[in-house]
């Protein structure tokens, strides 16, 4: 009896359920598109502003014309590049980012190798010390680091910006994990052939861990290219040495700035990171997994 009475309504609701399911899918997409607009709208508007031919008159606040430019031009990009000498800042960004990537890869790989492959007194302690950097309070670090750099005569130089940022737990863990995955037999074979430890690191370990090196390089590239606070502070006395991230905001702060040019400058800064992100999407979408595991 009870079976029958329960089965009956289920049969009747079969068709509406399908409708409901379709409705759910539609609702899901509606929400996703709303979130999408929230996430990317600022970029699209900036793109529209950067492409607008301003000589037709009008301001960036002319809606909806500002969102859908009628006359499109690349002149703003050329103009911001020449009048604000953007090339100088592009070069500064490349210099700082390049040195940071190189430094991070070298320091992390060197430190990770013994942590993964050697037995030596104090290993666990050093490992603990590196883990500790993840949780230690760092609220006053930037004050002391500027004093230290001043003392070393590096304040206001690219090296000064780079040095405090290259040794970090993230890179060391990432490389240690990669080294742990290489079969011991391979290393023993090289040792029997008389290879030095440095040769083993550079000729066996590093080529075999290229994916991890690439991942670390890409994460470092994005972080370093985008960094604002520390470069701004360390280079506050050297306005000609600042990277794009600092320069773009400074241009915006100028009294009589041209918003069309600023938008173009912002995009010039954004494009390299966007390209790297799109080509290495999977890496970012895996999150911190690689490092945490």
């Amino acid at each position: 009896m009870s079976l029958v009475s329960r089965a009956a309504p289920v049969q009747r609701s079969y068709a509406p359920r399908r409708h409901r399911k379709l409705g759910r899918v539609v609702l899901r997409y509606v929400i996703l598109i709303a979130v999408l607009i929230f996430a990317v709208f600022p970029f699209l508007w900036t793109l529209a502003i950067a492409l607008t031919d301003k000589h037709g008159g009008g301001s960036i606040y002319d809606f909806p014309a500002s969102l859908f430019p009628r006359a499109v031009t690349l002149r703003n990009f050329v103009e911001v590049y020449t009048t604000f000498s953007l090339g100088k800042y592009v070069w500064n960004s490349i210099s700082i980012t390049g040195m940071t990537i190189l430094g991070t890869l070298v320091v992390s790989a060197l430190a990770a190798y013994p942590l993964a492959r050697f037995r030596f007194p104090g290993r666990d302690l050093i490992f603990g010390v590196i883990v500790a950097t993840l949780v230690l309070p760092s609220e006053t670090t930037f004050i002391v680091n500027t004093l230290t750099l001043k003392e070393l005569g590096l304040l206001g130089t690219h090296v000064g910006v780079v040095l405090p940022t290259i040794a970090g737990a993230f890179g060391i863990f990432l490389m240690r994990q990669a080294f742990l995955g290489i079969p011991q037999a391979l290393i023993e074979a090289a040792r029997i052939d008389g290879a030095s430890e440095f040769t083993i690191l550079t000729r066996i370990m590093l080529p075999l861990t290229k994916p991890s090196l690439a991942a670390l390089g890409i994460f470092t590239l994005v972080a370093s290219w985008n960094a604002y606070f520390w470069p701004m502070l360390a280079l506050s006395g050297a306005p000609d040495s600042v990277p794009l991230s600092v320069a773009v905001l400074k241009l915006k702060g100028q009294f009589n700035y041209d918003p069309f040019n600023i938008a173009a400058g912002a995009l010039i800064m954004m494009i390299p990171v966007l390209l790297v992100f799109l080509s290495a999407q999977k890496l970012f979408m895996r999150g911190m997994e690689g490092a945490v595991k």
Binding site: T46, V222, N226, F229, V248, M270
Partner: peptide, 14 residues
């Protein structure tokens, strides 16, 4: 994820 890889200075401009 794009806002995550956007510099704070660009976010400020936009």
């Amino acid at each position: 994820y794009v806002p995550v890889v956007t510099s704070i200075s660009l976010a400020a401009v936009m």
